[in-house]
Design a protein around this nucleic acid. Structure first.
Length: 642
RNA sequence: GCCGGUAUAGCUCAGUUGGCCAGAGCACGUGAUUUGUAAUCUCGGGGUCGUCAGUUCGAAUCUGUCUACCGGCUCCA
């Protein structure tokens, strides 16, 4: 008999050789139907394998990451089986589960595979799924494994790195794959599958190694779930900032201007300006001093900062002047300029902290394949600031920055966010610069600051920058996708390199600590994320056009213009639709352009002096006085922006 | 940068196996209409089919080149 312990502490005894699935059945048939995988004493097991020792058994269902992982990993086996069915010469490599679905990297040799082939692969996978093939893990010796894969250099490479005695194969039907396990009981659990796309991927992620074809797929236990997932993708497509940016006339790109260089159209520029002004006001209150620095800097500046040796190849090529040997760079970051500003006047401890803020446009030569809409570009504007303070002030300054970031998230309706604290890798102190004492102080300051602000943080070791620890903010948008936005970083490197100093109360020179911070990250990226988050329906205070005035016929155009002027006096952005169109048409166009408010003016309104108000997506709101309408908007704006 | 895909009017897209002046809807301009809560009708202008070269009697269509865009290149059996 063996004793099985469950996570809740309950224990039951079973005959030796009972399978995990038998155990589940003994608890309830419902559980047995839903479990996809499990662990025994923390080790991944196959549900159909016998249990032979006492241990702790944990089950995973679709609602657990472990369950999904087993499901998708098993689906990858079926994908491989289907691929071999059509391409017997293909060489399999690896096929893991990923965050949403799975992939298999395959060397197809001379064969090509494209979207046209997806359907037949899907059909074949479903055919295999219907046959409820059991997944069975079996141990093999290293020699056997190498023999089985003697024609597959990828699997051979993997096997060679494994210990003899730990190697297992997974069989289902007549298909065998090298695999360490963690499967669903049989293929029949797979009720829906979709091949998403194919892409190139290097063997082991190394660009010097052969390039394989990566086939991405996703599968579900219910056909309805696949449908739901595809609908979510559709929704994401509709919210794609590149599509909305074009439709709402916010920004564009030009092949002639160059890759990754966004051009802001008037509506987009005004939107961005509003965001900038919003942050400027908040920063003024928080004691920041605005500064302005040029777009280029002498190459020596970046040699001094260390950026040139580290990031020189990611910069645009140096700009040469008529002087022999003189070189300038388009600035890839603002910090060196700000360090020079700090040095412009002698500092005493009484002057600190100094907080220099600049919407600084920087240029970086991103690889062409990395460029993506506004989220990855070659020219962008950081909402940058550098705080120079004493080590003792670090924690308070850090907390103030956290407050600023959270204020921005709150105002822009990002309710769901997490913070990642990135610390040194304790194993590799040689990777970092700065004294151990300062690191200890800085890391403690960040952790305490985050704790005291009640942040939901995850600590990552080894993720710190070489010059200091940092705190990054990740937000979730309305569709549940994560984006990295703001960042706060501590830096000991630049003050050292630029020999920044302040006179302490002891009349000695001391080195300040620097904080780099950008709550938005970059204006481009932030606008992209905001656009996808709100689906183009910007908060009232940000939206390019707040009100569209729609005259019932052109007889009322003059009156409509009077109303517009009246609103403009109250700082409301209003436009009159003067086109010779029917009112229904004007309403439709205003709705499509996502204008928050529409005012219909005709004979009734001229006579009564009232306004007929319509709200985007909500329809007719009835009549109200001009004063009441202005107050309605003002109240909503002040409520949003506090 | 690398792999795969895509490129036709301002936008979204048709364009059969190469064959006369390359099409539609929307947008834009014109005229009519004077409209009451999600698309009024009329007429019209607009494209060297991304670039450069090649195959062919003939290329939007086939081949190569370059450029841009889209998906991917971290997830280790």
């Amino acid at each position: 008999m063996i004793t099985v312990t469950f996570p809740d502490g309950n224990q039951r005894t079973y005959d030796e050789g009972t399978t995990a699935m038998d155990v589940a059945m003994s608890i309830s048939h419902g559980l047995a139907r839903n479990i996809l995988s499990g662990t025994y004493d923390g080790q991944t097991i196959e549900l159909n394998d016998p249990l032979i020792t006492d241990g702790t058994l944990q089950f995973f269902t679709w609602n657990d990451d472990g369950g999904k992982k087993a499901f998708w990993h098993s689906s990858a086996h079926v994908l491989a089986q289907a691929i071999l069915h059509f391409y017997p010469e293909a060489k399999l490599t690896i096929g893991p589960a990923i965050e949403k679905g799975f992939y298999y990297d395959v060397d197809f040799g001379d064969e090509m595979i494209s979207e046209k082939d997806f359907e037949k692969i899907e059909k074949q996978m479903m055919e295999f799924a219907r046959q409820k093939f059991e997944f069975k893990l079996r141990a093999v010796t290293k020699a056997e494994a190498l023999e089985a894969y003697k024609n597959n250099p990828y699997k051979t490479e993997i096997i060679e790195n494994l210990e003899d005695g730990t190697i297992t194969f997974c069989d289902h039907a007549d298909f065998t794959d090298l695999c360490r396990g963690g499967h669903i009981p049989h293929t029949g659990y797979i009720k829906a599958v979709k091949i998403m796309n194919v892409a190139g991927a290097y063997w082991r992620g190394d660009e010097n190694k052969p390039q394989l074809t990566r086939v991405y797929g996703v599968s579900f236990m219910k056909a309805a779930e696949l449908k739901e997932y595809l609908e979510l993708l559709e929704e994401a497509k509709k919210r794609d900032h590149r599509k909305l940016g074009k439709e709402l006339e916010l920004f564009t790109f030009s092949q002639r201007v160059g890759q990754g260089l966004p051009l802001w159209l008037p509506k987009g520029a005004m939107l961005r300006e509003r965001l900038e002004n919003f942050l400027k006001r908040a920063q003024n209150k928080a004691g920041y001093s605005p500064v302005i620095t040029p777009h280029i800097g002498n190459k020596e500046l970046y040699v001094c900062s260390g950026h040139y040796s580290k990031y020189g190849k990611d910069s645009f090529q140096p700009i040469h002047t008529p002087e022999e040997g003189e070189e300038y760079l388009l600035k890839p970051m603002n910090c060196p300029h700000h360090c020079e500003l700090y040095k412009a006047t002698p500092k005493s401890y009484k002057d600190l902290p100094v907080r220099f803020a600049e919407f600084g446009t920087v240029y970086r030569y991103e690889q062409s394949g990395e460029l993506h809409g506004l989220t990855r570009v070659r020219g962008f504007t950081q909402d940058d600031a550098h705080i120079f303070c004493t080590p003792d002030q670090l924690k308070d300054e850090f907390k103030n920055v956290i407050d600023l970031v959270l204020y921005i998230f709150k105002t822009l309706d990002f309710k769901d966010y997490t913070a990642q604290v990135s610390l040194r890798d304790p194993e590799k102190p040689e990777k970092y610069i700065g004294s151990d004492e300062n690191w200890v102080k800085a890391e403690a300051a960040i952790i305490e600051a985050a704790d005291e602000k009640g942040l939901n943080t995850a600590v990552e070791y080894g993720e710190a920058a070489f010059y200091g620890p940092k705190l990054d903010f990740m937000v979730k948008d309305a569709l549940g996708r994560s984006w990295q936005l703001g960042t706060i970083q501590v830096d000991y490197n630049l003050p050292e390199r630029f020999e920044l100093e302040y006179k302490g109360s002891d009349n000695q020179e001391h080195r300040p600590v620097m904080i780099h911070r950008a709550p938005f990250g970059s204006m481009e990226r932030f606008v992209a994320v905001l656009l996808e988050h709100c689906g183009g329906n910007f908060p009232l205070w940000l939206t390019p056009e707040q009100v569209k005035i729609l005259p019932v016929s052109d007889k009322y155009n003059d009156y409509a213009k009077e109303v517009a002027q009246f609103l403009e006096i109250s700082d409301i952005r209003a436009l009159v639709d003067e086109r010779n169109e029917k009112i229904g048409r004007k309403i439709r166009d205003a709705e499509v352009s996502k204008t928050p408010f529409m005012l219909i003016v005709g004979e009734k309104e001229v006579d009564s002096g009232q306004l007929s108000v319509r709200r985007h997506g909500q329809g007719d709101q009835g009549a109200m006085s001009k004063e009441k309408f202005i107050k309605l908007i003002a109240d909503e704006v002040s409520q949003l922006i506090e």
